[in-house]
């Protein structure tokens, strides 16, 4: 096993192309997961029992099955019913849906943590349902859950290599293709691993800071 720096220099531009897509997928997936999670959390609190139960089951089902198979499902089954998605879009939808079911739990805990008095005060001030949510509940519920949400976004980032299975040209796929071209696996694979490790270690610092900044509720 010998490490060749020249080869590293040669493949770097290709890998950086992949890094861009990886980061793009993570950001878009995070945004989608944040929205889907809020949607699921709100739907589960719905007055309509049928909506609440079916959304609950759907979320449970998605959380109990592998992301890879869900990606295949989106990528291969949807075109058969006429929805043709580019790989990156399919990947982002898969990531967003899968992690949305996780962030839904974070939202649920955050919303449950808002004291009852706030709901009652909103009612006393004659706010309607939408205003209660947008002006009273969510502004208080969301800041304390930012660290937990960030945690799931980092977990999602580490799952982005799965997108290579549905032909998204992200970091892992670029690494695999250069590895197959030159039949040298050591450098590309190790670099991908190092990249993920560095980002994860940095994100630990970021998480600490977020916990410090948002972890407590000021009263």
């Amino acid at each position: 096993m010998d490490w060749d720096w020249n080869f590293v220099r040669e493949i770097m531009p290709t890998l950086i192309q992949g890094v861009k897509i990886t980061i793009l997928a993570t950001i878009l997936g995070s945004i989608l997961a944040a929205i889907v999670g809020l949607g699921i959390a709100l739907a589960r609190r719905s007055e309509n029992r049928l909506v609440a139960r079916s959304v609950s089951w759907f979320a449970e089902f998605i959380r109990g099955t592998p992301l890879l198979v869900q990606l295949y499902f989106i990528f291969y089954v949807l075109p058969d019913i006429g929805i043709l998605l580019p790989p990156l879009v399919a990947g982002v939808i898969g990531l967003g849906l899968h992690y949305g079911t996780y962030t839904a739990e974070v939202y649920r805990a955050g919303i449950d943590n808002v004291p009852r008095g706030q709901w009652e005060a909103a009612k006393a001030c004659n706010l309607n349902g939408r205003h209660t949510w947008t002006h009273i509940i969510l502004p208080q519920a969301i800041p304390p859950m930012i660290p937990a949400l960030a945690n799931y976004f980092i977990a999602m980032f580490k799952e982005t290599p799965l997108l290579s299975a549905i032909t998204v040209l992200e970091l892992m796929n670029q690494a695999k293709s250069v590895a197959n071209t030159y039949y040298r696996y050591i450098e590309p694979m190790t670099l991908v691993g190092a990249f993920f490790l560095v980002i994860s270690l940095c994100s630990v610092v970021l998480l600490r800071w977020l916990e410090h900044r948002y972890g407590r509720i000021e009263r």
């Binding site: 580490k158 799952e159 290599p161 799965l162 892992m172 691993g193 993920f196 490790l197 270690l201």
Partner: peptide, 24 residues
């Protein structure tokens, strides 16, 4: 713990399968 939580499972699997053979 930090190493295995920090690098994704996918990368670890590929590393174990494709790189370790080069180490014999």
């Amino acid at each position: 713990i930090e190493f295995f939580r920090g690098t994704s499972i996918f990368v670890q699997l590929f590393w174990a399968y494709f790189v370790l053979p080069f180490a014999g």
